[in-house]
């Protein structure tokens, strides 16, 4: 079944097509959800909410760009909405006191996906969202500020703090390993 046929099927509420769409994209989107969520359960809830939005709004898909990209945007927006009521400004956890890391790039290269995911999941909500949007999704600070309804400078500072925290965590892992 082609992607277009699947989309058409979902538009007319064909359960088989909906299930097939879920089967094709759920794993990829679960990976996205895990990056934005603190734990597995929260990621599953996010995925569920996102796919409900996908099915409910599928008639709005205009075949501009890829279907996967459209679903991914919905997943990201669902994650953002989930955190929209939380104020990032309160998330001061003493990062300012963290020393600037000078870990060489090869240190990061040895880390596995699951380890990286765990590090991201352990970030405070605001840091995690900004880091995901900027570093992984590739949005600019201007876009992030519009998406989150905050200043560009806030986005920048959140990113810097997130990097600091991640680097310190990676260094800790290195020390433990040694």
């Amino acid at each position: 079944m082609t992607e277009r046929e699947l989309i058409e099927g979902c538009m007319r509420e064909d359960r088989k097509c909906q299930q097939e769409v879920f089967r094709r994209y759920a794993s990829k989107m679960m990976g996205v959800c895990l990056r934005y969520a603190r734990h597995q359960m929260e990621a599953e809830d996010l995925l569920q909410d996102a796919f409900i939005k996908v099915y409910n709004n599928i008639s709005k898909f205009e075949y501009k760009g890829s279907f996967e990209g459209w679903i991914r945007r919905i997943v990201v927006n669902t994650a953002l909405k989930n955190y929209s009521k939380k104020s990032f400004t309160y998330e001061q956890i003493g990062v300012e006191e963290q020393p600037e890391s000078s870990a060489p790039p090869e240190v990061y290269a040895h880390l596995h996906e699951e380890e990286l995911l765990k590090l991201v999941a352990d970030l405070p909500d605001g840091y995690r969202v900004v880091f995901n949007l900027y570093a992984i999704e590739g949005y600019s600070h201007k876009e992030i500020s519009e998406m989150l309804g905050c200043q560009e400078s806030t986005s920048r500072s959140q990113l810097v703090k997130a990097r600091k925290l991640l680097q310190s965590q990676i260094l800790k892992l290195q020390k433990i390993a040694v």
Binding site: A26, G31, E113, A135
Partner: peptide, 28 residues
């Protein structure tokens, strides 16, 4: 740091439980 995370996590896939499909279908 960004580059490493992007390369390894951008297309990261994780198993989604099958029960999720039925649950979300019921939730609609």
């Amino acid at each position: 740091l960004d580059d490493t995370f992007r390369r390894k996590l951008r297309h990261y896939e994780a198993h989604a439980p099958d029960a999720l499909w039925q649950q979300l279908d019921a939730k609609r």
